[in-house]
Amino acid sequence: MAKYVMWGSYCEDVLEKRTPYRQDHLDGLAKQKELGILITLGPTKDLTKVFAIYEAEDEVTVKELIEGDPYWQNGIWTEYSVTEWIQAI
């Protein structure tokens, strides 16, 4: 399976706005991690960007996971890009 890197942006006032969706978001990420699709995901320290690494069959699968996430569906993530990644080491 291929690996993919996702970079995205958070909305303004993310800590306040994410509250109603946070548990569903975390539950979904935990399920993806259990399935071995999500390698890692987290915000930058300044809470402006989100970074993730996925291992999946294709880019379409990764985009479906991102767009199915409550943070995307409710405007907490405001944009994202996915790029196939080659892990050298």
Rank of each mutant, 00 (worst) to 15 (best):
D58P: 03
G75D: 05
I53D: 03
Q73Y: 09
E57A: 15
R22K: 12
D24K: 14
Q87M: 08
V60F: 08
A30F: 11
Y80M: 01
E79M: 07
Q32C: 10
W7S: 09
V5S: 05
L41K: 09
H25K: 02
L65T: 00
Y71W: 13
H25I: 00
M6D: 01
F51Q: 07
Q23E: 14
S9L: 11
T40H: 07
S81I: 13
A56D: 04
Y21N: 00
V82T: 01
T40I: 10
P20S: 03
V60D: 08
K45H: 13
I37N: 09
E12K: 15
W72L: 02
E79G: 10
W72S: 05
E57F: 11
G42W: 03
D69K: 06
K49I: 05
E57V: 14
T19N: 08
K31T: 07
L65R: 13
E34M: 06
E34N: 08
G42C: 00
V14N: 00
M6E: 06
D13E: 09
R22N: 03
T48G: 08
A2P: 15
G36S: 03
E16Q: 14
Q87H: 10
D69H: 06
G75M: 09
I86K: 15
A52D: 04
M1L: 02
D69I: 04
K33G: 04
Q32I: 09
I66N: 02
I86L: 15
D27A: 11
L15G: 03
Q87S: 11
M6W: 06
L41W: 11
D27Q: 09
L41R: 08
E67L: 03
T83H: 13
Y21K: 03
Y21C: 03
T48R: 12
D24H: 13
T19S: 08
E64I: 07
V14Y: 02
G36T: 01
A56K: 11
D58M: 04
I66P: 01
A30P: 06
K63L: 05
W77Q: 02
E59T: 09
A2T: 09
I76H: 06
T19W: 08
A88T: 13
L35H: 08
L35Q: 14
E55P: 01
T19K: 14
P20W: 03
A30S: 13
V82W: 00
H25F: 00
E16K: 15
V5W: 05
L35I: 06
A52K: 04
N74A: 05
G28I: 02
